[in-house]
Design a protein around this nucleic acid. Structure first.
Lengths: 165, 165
DNA sequence: CGCTTCTTTCAGAAATTTGTGAAGTTAAGG
DNA sequence: CCTTAACTTCACAAATTTCTGAAAGAAGCG
């Protein structure tokens, strides 16, 4: 048995993790290719890969990579970097920022809240359905506020654990 | 203009909300039919509907309803009730419990954590990729603990706001 | 400017998902 | 027991999504 940490990355082990984690992201609703690209970046050495590297590792076309990173950038799970002096682009996962995207999906939550508010209005706050929706709305509003604080506490906790641990 | 709260439910307004909210749930990764069934229940008067009622309102076959409620029950977003003295079943959304399912997806989080832990192990904690995954894992562990407390605070908050407000 | 390298867009093929009708299963009530 | 009302399962058709190859678009570099 080879020792991954000694010889560097074991491509098979990496691939196993990438595909496994990607499958779970897919199950949670993410597009397959985006999930695979994301998992590959997460497991990469530098946290950044070029389109060619991604296509090579995942055995997919440049077009597929392009679509995936467009989506990932849109939801702030990766950022794009231009390599100076080249058209080559580099896609990076900021380990300290990607999961913030998960919790601070402001835009998404805001739209949910808008739809729920419309629902309360058009059903009427006095109807049972309206009240049920109003409670759901209140929950999301509460959640949004709390998540912000939660993330602050997490950063503190992380700095203690990882920063000097 | 009719007054929904006076004349009872305005089917058009209900449908507009149901389809709109369902669309957002779909965008967030939920199956279309499950989303529609769930939204219909949320907007319903009693918070519960029979298979026939759902099929009628959403214009879909019994088979589609069956599949949708099976999924929804699995993720604890609705519960099934047997009407005593009849084979007819009733599907209910507990307004105070469905969004708890959103935050306390223990099983899902546990599986994510398991996959991430495997990833750390097989890449090695000393590799950059391993460390990045370890931080993600730590975040999810933290999140899981915090969400439990968050939900307790929410219940308190809700009781104050809705219980006697 | 034009060449070259990289990325994006697009039409279409392939794969997957979704919803239906029909048959199958289960249990209440005579 | 048999009938019947309800739910579920299954094979298949339809719709949607996903990925590819090819062509088009951008930008560095001579």
């Amino acid at each position: 048995m080879t020792e991954p940490s000694a010889v560097g990355r074991d491509p098979e082990a990496v691939s196993k993790f990438v595909e496994g984690f990607a499958a779970q992201l897919v199950e949670a609703g993410m597009q397959r290719m985006a999930a695979r690209v994301f998992a590959a970046l997460l497991a990469s050495d530098s946290g950044a890969m070029t389109s060619a590297e991604l296509g090579e590792q995942l055995q997919v076309s440049p077009a597929a990579v392009s679509g995936a990173v467009r989506y990932l950038a849109q939801v702030h799970m990766v950022s794009r970097e231009r390599e100076p002096g080249s058209r080559r682009e580099r896609y990076r996962v900021h380990s300290d920022q990607w999961y913030e995207a998960l919790t601070s999906r402001d835009a998404v939550l805001k739209r949910w809240e808008h739809t729920l508010r419309e629902g309360v209005d058009s059903l009427g706050v006095t109807t049972p359905g309206g009240q049920r929706i109003a409670e759901t709305l209140a929950f999301f509003e509460y959640l949004q506020g709390e998540l912000g604080q939660l993330m602050e506490r997490w950063r503190e906790h992380r700095d203690k654990t990882f920063g000097q641990g």
